[in-house]
Amino acid sequence: MNIVVCVKYVPDAQADRTFSVDNTTDRAGVDGLLSELDEYAVEEALKIAEANDGEVTILTIGPDRAADALKKALQMGAHRAVHVNDAAIHGSDAIATSLVLAKAIQKLDPQPDLVLTGMASTDGTMGVVPTMLAERLGLPAVTYASELTVADGKVSVRRDGDLASQTIEATLPALVSVTDQINEPRYPSFKGIMAAKKKPVDTWTLADLGVDAELVGLTAAWTTVESFSARPPRQKGQIVTDEGDGGSKLAVFLGEHKFL
């Protein structure tokens, strides 16, 4: 069983995230890390590989520092990693990112049986790259898995929707995006941290993938951020301490603001 996990290096949500002068996400001025939501995909891949004698490859597209995300996943136990790194990729939108991911996956040898992703990145939070990638690879996709079983050449996924909880099946090869409900990601062990240092990491450029640089990056993006503005800070509100009348005061506020 060969599994590839797509992971993204993102600015830390706890830091003050912002934009660069070209209206793209600032990835230089803010510390980054492996997107927390992709840890669930790495964990799930490791569990499936452990049960099926499989190999886990981690794939990322990102600048030099994105190597940190790969390192973390290798420390958790993944076998090898691929880093697609090319200055021309800066500013790519989801459409271009999915194109490059698709080309990189097609170059893998052996080809994966299963592609796993996080449910959404914690920076862009679009949650559309997995579906776009599946569309490009011609794979069946099941997104937002909160439970995943792989057996008999099939994936079976539990997906919790608003109206119903569904079981969805698809034949391998397939793509599955997983939610933060699916497992509890492991912390790298000391042994894992030491072992990661010797694991193979391939670095590929757009030329290696045969992707025309004109098709990616900020100028090729099919959507443009025209402007951005910080949300005005909220006016400091009124805070009262409950002295036996907190509930009544709350109700008075509701009345004054026409909520009753």
């Binding site: 909220r234 006016q235 509100g237 009124q238 805070i239 009262v240 301490t241 409950d242 036996g244 009348d245 907190g246 509930g247 009544s248 005061k249 709350l250 109700a251 506020f253 509701l254 603001h257």
Partner: peptide, 17 residues
Amino acid sequence: LVDFGVVGDLFNVLPQA
């Protein structure tokens, strides 16, 4: 973030509200 906040135990504040 709030426009209005009550510092207190929810089990006292909510029933009264």
